Each structure stands twice: as C-alpha cells, then as structure tokens.
Simulated scan of single mutants.
Amino acid sequence: MHLKSISKRTLTATKYDGGKLLVNGIERDVRHPLHPGDEVEIQFPPEKISMGLAVEHGELDLVYEDDALIVVNKPAGQSTIPSRDHPSGTIANFLAGKFTRERVPSTVHIVTRLDRNTSGLICIARNRHIHHLLGQQMIHSDFFRRYEAIVEGHIMKDAFSIEEPIGREDGSIIKRVVREDGQYARTDVLVSERFHIKGRALSRVNLNLHTGRTHQIRVHMEWAGHPLVGDDLYGGDVLFISRQALHCTALMFTHPLSGELKVFESKVPKDMRYLNQNK
C-alpha cells in the first residue's frame, strides 16, 4: 500500500500508537493490496502535549484557524517556544492551553517560528501529518515568507539576493555568522525607502526567505554591512528602538488539505511605524 504524502514517522505512529488504516471500512495493514475504486481512510492516533511544554492560558492574536492549521500574529517580546531562559508565557504554552480547553488531541507543531524580539505571523500545524505536508512545501520553496525590516545605512542597490552559508559562531551557543562550512541560506532584499532620523541614514527593506536558518535575516544583513536597527547582537544601534526592527508581514502557501492558496498579511507594529514617522 502506498500512502501518498504520509511521512514514515506518521505511518509508524498510526500502526503502533492507536491509529488505524481502513480500506472500504475494514481495518487493514500496510501490506494489503489496493484495487481501483478502493476507499482508504487513515485515522491518526491521538497526540499528547509534548513533555516539558507547560499548559498555560493566555491571549493569542489569532489571524486564521481551521481543523488543519492556525496562524498567529506574535508580538515582539514573546517567545515562540519555551527555552531555559523563557520557559513560560510562550506562544506554544498558550496554544497548549487552547488545545487542552478545546479537548484537541494534539501537541503543538510550530511550522514557522520567530525570534523572541521579532514580531509578526507564525504558522502552527494541528497534527504531525499537517506539519509534514507544510514542511515539504518549505523544503521545495513553495512556502512564501515576507518580512519588513529597518536597517542601518542607505543600501545602494534597489534589489539583490544574499546567498551565504550560515553556521554557529565559534564559542557561542546563540550567535550565528556567515561561514564556509555553514548551511546554505538565501535571502532576497528589496529596498522600499531610504531616509534619515536625526541625521542617521536608515533603509526600509522587504525580505523574502528561501531558507529558514536561525537568525538568517539578522546574519545576512550584518554580513551585507547593514545590520537591523535595534539588533545589538548583530551590530545594530538601540538608540531608536529597543529590539530588532523586524516583522513578518506575510505568509503564503497552499492549504495542505483543500489545495487552496492561502495568503495572510500583518501590518508592522507601532514601534516600527514610529521610526518611519519620525524622519
């Protein structure tokens, strides 16, 4: 039996963790031969909230929600997932609370995540199968992510791409750098405005990600000589804003079940708008 688009991990869980494979309403195993006209139904096993993920109840800015996925608008200052320094109050903790209240038999599957001090749209799958399908879109560059940022200096080129590998900086568990032995990464940059604030040259840019490396935009813009305003880890000045001026403004992908093209957009928050208004 060939189960199209089902990951090996999901199929294994279906076999051994309480799921079922039904052919014409009768439970079968993966070796059962299929014939034209057969109806195959897969009942995925219930999932449990991941170990270490505290169930908490808090406010979520829900942009979209259905039986397959959720899109949330994350504010700056809130972590996407728990960490040693920020174990509670995260998007994942609050989603675990939401799933518990609604008796959703699933854990939280983060498809796209943002750094704690980056704001904007993130996508969450409701089960491991949807996570796999959306992950495949990302691998094949069919999952579109657009960001807006304000960076130091005036960028001379109107549009360009940065294709530089990214890896962990030696001696650091947090900082990343461009390095030859790093992972392939590509960021497309489009300059939308050049302006000054109190004599400081700044540029507003739109960025499209083709890969999703840790701190990718921050690393690539530092490498290009134009670190994000407010990003003191990568050379940005915190004079005008206390966090990196970076916001995920749009997500575009094909819905994994309906096949419908989904587009979600988010306006930049007040702190980034304030920068543009004080030119």
Rank of each mutant, 00 (worst) to 15 (best):
V63W: 01
I26Q: 15
T80Q: 10
K74P: 09
L69Q: 03
L60Y: 00
Q43P: 06
E47N: 10
I6R: 00
S50Y: 10
L11Y: 01
L3V: 02
T80Y: 00
I26G: 11
Y64C: 11
R9I: 14
L22P: 11
P33C: 05
L22T: 09
H2L: 11
M51G: 15
M51E: 15
H35P: 05
A13W: 03
S7F: 02
A13I: 05
L34C: 10
D17A: 15
D17M: 11
Q78V: 15
A68F: 07
A76E: 03
D66G: 12
A13D: 03
P33Q: 04
A76W: 02
D67G: 12
D38N: 08
I6M: 07
V55H: 06
I70Q: 03
H2F: 10
S7C: 12
E65T: 08
R31S: 15
P36T: 05
G19Y: 01
T80N: 08
P33I: 02
P36Q: 08
S5Q: 14
K48V: 15
D38L: 05
L11H: 03
H32A: 14
T10K: 04
G58S: 10
S5C: 11
S50L: 08
L11G: 12
K8E: 06
I26T: 15
D29P: 08
T10G: 12
R31G: 14
L34V: 10
E59N: 13
E59V: 14
S7H: 03
D67W: 00
K48R: 14
K74G: 14
S79Y: 04
R9V: 14
L53I: 08
D29Y: 00
N24F: 04
D17N: 15
V23I: 11
K48W: 07
V40N: 06
A54S: 14
G25A: 08
Y64S: 12
L69A: 11
P46F: 02
G77N: 04
A68Y: 08
G77K: 05
V72Q: 05
H2N: 15
E59P: 06
I42W: 01
V71K: 01
G18L: 07
N73V: 09
L11D: 02
G52S: 04
H2D: 12
I6D: 03
D61E: 13
G52F: 02
V71H: 00
K20A: 13
